[in-house]
Design a protein around this nucleic acid. Sequence first.
DNA 1: ATGCAACCTCAAGCTAAGTTGAGGTCAAGC
DNA 2: GCTTGACCTCAACTTAGCTTGAGGTTGCAT
Lengths: 145, 145
Amino acid sequence: MQASFITIGHLAKRTGVAVSALRFYEEKGLLHPLRTNGNQRRYLRSDIRRVSFILIAQKLGLGLTEIEEQLAKLPEGRNPTLSDWQKISRAMRFEIDQRINLLTRTRNQLDQCIGCGCLSLEKCQLYNKDDRLGLKGAGPRAVLD
Amino acid sequence: MQASFITIGHLAKRTGVAVSALRFYEEKGLLHPLRTNGNQRRYLRSDIRRVSFILIAQKLGLGLTEIEEQLAKLPEGRNPTLSDWQKISRAMRFEIDQRINLLTRTRNQLDQCIGCGCLSLEKCQLYNKDDRLGLKGAGPRAVLD
DNA sequence: ATGCAACCTCAAGCTAAGTTGAGGTCAAGC
DNA sequence: GCTTGACCTCAACTTAGCTTGAGGTTGCAT
């Protein structure tokens, strides 16, 4: 059978990802190729799509660990169906929306800052909001010189 | 004079950034504190704002090198004025807008993908567009199993 | 004038996401 | 049946952005 198995080199060419990166992804648990008797990796054709997903998700700023969590939702063993992928796509859309919202909020706050000239931690909305500082101590207050 | 100089510890508390990170930023050329006779760092109060800027810019995904380029626009020596900061803020606003646009485009493309179920490199807008693949060889075409 | 927290330097270590290289094996075409 | 390109493992190196630790000094408050 010249079945649906492809070599690592083939997968690399089809996805534009380096062979070394594909091996690295396997090490990180994102890919699970089979092996020949001679110990060479053999991928399913559907792994091309799997790798595409990794690339897209990385563009969205997800780390490999988070990506693995998403991929874990795919059925292991059988080829993922269209609806399997659609579920994940929707999750990603949600992610993107979140990011757009965050950026939009940041931009609005920055607009205020352009107005007031403040890039101060204590007065500026831009920074106070998003966690990070506890602003615990009632330290000095004169930030604007 | 209890002038406008602050210690590294003070700056750390005011910004929420670790002392070690502040020293690291200096090494990378983002901060230029003075030194006491005893070799301890002394920062200007305006460095609080400078650090705030670093934090915000990092959230936007800029690397320290790029941030340094922005900061280089600030006058060295004298305290930056309101309008100095405003210039930089506007540059940032532009950056944010760019990012929002990119994400919005990505989302629209993903929406198409949800429709067609394709997360394929060769057919999907999402991936083909943005560089990366040369898609040079006229390799096999059957991506959807 | 002394104690001790806060500071200093320098080297090494860490995570993420890979790449590079050495040394060796596999498999497919002639 | 042999050659050769593609594959294998394992270890070390890379960049970014820091943290941690060892060993030593400073400076402020009493």
